[in-house]
Simulated assay, not measured.
Amino acid sequence: MTGFTLDDLARIVAQRADASTAEKSYTRSLVEAGPARCAKKLGEEGVEAALATASGTKVELVAEAADVLYHLLVALRVREVDLVEVMAELERRTVQSGHAEKASRER
Rank of each mutant, 00 (worst) to 15 (best):
M1Q: 13
T2M: 14
T2D: 13
G3D: 10
T5Q: 02
L6M: 02
L6P: 02
L6Y: 02
L6F: 04
D7F: 09
D8V: 00
D8I: 00
A10D: 02
A10L: 01
R11E: 04
R11K: 02
I12L: 03
I12E: 00
I12F: 00
I12Q: 00
A14K: 02
R16V: 01
A17I: 00
D18P: 04
A19D: 06
A19M: 01
S20A: 12
T21F: 04
T21D: 02
E23Q: 12
K24P: 02
Y26N: 12
Y26C: 10
L30C: 13
E32G: 09
A33M: 01
G34W: 10
A36M: 10
A36S: 12
A36F: 06
C38H: 03
A39T: 11
K40A: 15
K40W: 11
K40C: 12
K41V: 10
L42M: 08
G43L: 15
G43M: 15
E44S: 08
E44N: 09
E44L: 07
E44K: 14
E45A: 07
G46M: 11
E48L: 09
E48M: 09
E48W: 06
L51P: 02
L51D: 14
A52P: 11
A52E: 09
T53E: 15
T53C: 15
A54S: 10
S55A: 14
S55C: 15
G56E: 10
T57Y: 06
V59S: 12
V59Y: 10
E60Q: 15
E60L: 13
V62C: 14
A63H: 08
A63L: 11
E64S: 11
A65S: 15
A65G: 14
A65Y: 10
D67P: 03
V68W: 12
V68S: 11
V68D: 13
L69I: 13
Y70H: 15
H71V: 10
V74G: 04
V74H: 02
V74F: 02
V74N: 03
A75R: 06
A75G: 06
L76H: 04
L76E: 05
V78N: 02
V78E: 00
R79S: 14
R79C: 14
E80Y: 05
V81H: 05
V81M: 07
D82T: 00
L83D: 01
V84L: 06
V86C: 00
V86T: 01
V86R: 01
A88V: 04
A88C: 03
L90T: 04
L90D: 07
E91Q: 11
R92M: 03
R92Y: 05
R93H: 02
T94C: 12
V95F: 06
V95T: 14
V95G: 14
V95I: 08
V95D: 13
G98L: 09
G98E: 07
G98A: 11
A100I: 04
A100T: 08
E101H: 07
E101D: 06
K102R: 14
K102C: 07
K102A: 10
R105C: 04
R105N: 03
R105K: 05
E106T: 05
R107A: 08
